[in-house]
Design a protein around this nucleic acid. Structure first.
Lengths: 207, 207
DNA sequence: GGCGCTGTTGGCCGCACGCCAATAACGGTA
DNA sequence: TACCGTTATTGGCGTGCGGCCAACAGCGCC
């Protein structure tokens, strides 16, 4: 008997990890360009070329997938050791700010999207993720300027400084209202002031 | 003929403005305590004691109502004239920071909710509203410290400073990781540095 | 070449939202 | 006081999205 013309399989079977990452990549792209509500799970599934139900299988709910995306996006590369704490304060600060702006300028759009405020309604889960990322960044900054990263109040101040960093980068990347070197100036001066004039006074300012 | 026992009306008819505000109040409350997606129009309608369809009648879509809420929340009371630009820089700065923290501490939770980052996905509409509010705040700050509020780059720097302010307030209100006086110290020092060391150098740092 | 494991599909179900015609509260008028 | 027009308000319908699950099929193994 003649064998029927071999039809190629309608879809390929992938390793769970591979499929998972494929979906995640597509989700990162879409959530990066549109707000949460404007991205449907159908969009993501279509973009990844899979059935909608598969998203639930791998990530649970749409929100869970979203959280995974945020986790992925807030990762910053390791601080280069060349920036290590050597030389006078001003030089160290300027080098690390410069390094940071280099890093950011690569993922500029994505970075701005992640740190952007969507508005009212603080989601505790998202909050936690961003807070963790901010805290990690704060530790790096404190190490760079040669301070103990285990003092809670110091990290809190530097996390607040992170708010300045994000807002300044937004002005630079988004609106072109500040140039890179103006941002550099602002962030350096602010950090120097914090290290020299604010952190030493922390215990004095009641507790 | 005997009149039937007068039944009280099943609902009262209100002036459009009154009804509108009533719904808006309820929406502000709910959006303040839960993220956007976790608040259904049914919740808001039930909270306000009206039919769900009335929300659409007054505000259009759920998103439109949400935008109205954001607009409402980002309004800051007028800067008290008593803070006007008198006395040395340090004193003016400290007074205005103090005034600001007083104002914020009243609506603390709401303020934090509004300025909170929901995460990925920048909504251009929301972005615009928050940007406008930030810019207005920047103008007030510049006036308080006695500078021209019409210099674009200066306002951009102060808007970035606003990022520091919000983050610092979050540390104070949310996590109790900083005390009010520590926040006061941080914000005052930072603003003084900006006014003294950053703004004058803005044109120098290329353009 | 059959057989089982499991990655993948497709469709069902419930829910939330936008829309619209019908309804009823309230002020004015005779 | 009884009626009437205006319009604020309701209630239900249609649509689209997201979670779930049972059946299906790609792929490795005996």
């Amino acid at each position: 008997m003649t064998t029927a013309p071999a039809e190629p399989p309608r879809w390929r079977r992938l390793e769970p990890d591979a499929r998972r990452e494929q979906i995640l990549d597509c989700a990162v792209r879409l959530f990066g360009e549109r707000p949460y509500a404007a991205v449907s799970t159908a969009d993501i599934a279509r973009g990844a070329g899979v059935a909608r139900g598969l998203l639930n299988h791998y990530f649970g709910t749409k929100r869970d997938l979203y959280l995974e995306v945020v986790r992925t996006l807030v990762m910053l590369p390791e601080l280069d050791d060349a920036i290590a704490a050597t030389g006078p304060l001003r030089a160290r600060v300027q080098r690390s700010v410069e390094w940071f702006l280099d890093v950011v300028s690569v993922h500029a759009r994505t970075f701005v999207a992640v740190t952007g405020a969507e508005g009212v309604g603080d989601d505790p889960e998202i909050e936690r993720i961003l807070a963790a990322a901010d805290d990690a960044a704060a530790r790096k900054v404190l190490e760079t300027v040669g301070l103990d990263a285990d003092v809670d109040e110091h990290r809190a101040v530097i996390r607040a400084y992170g708010g300045l960093v994000k807002a300044a980068v937004r002005e630079w990347v988004r609106g072109q209202t500040l140039t890179r070197s103006q941002v550099q100036l602002l962030l350096s001066q602010a950090l120097i002031t914090i290290v020299r004039d604010v952190l030493p006074e922390m215990e004095t300012a009641d507790d």
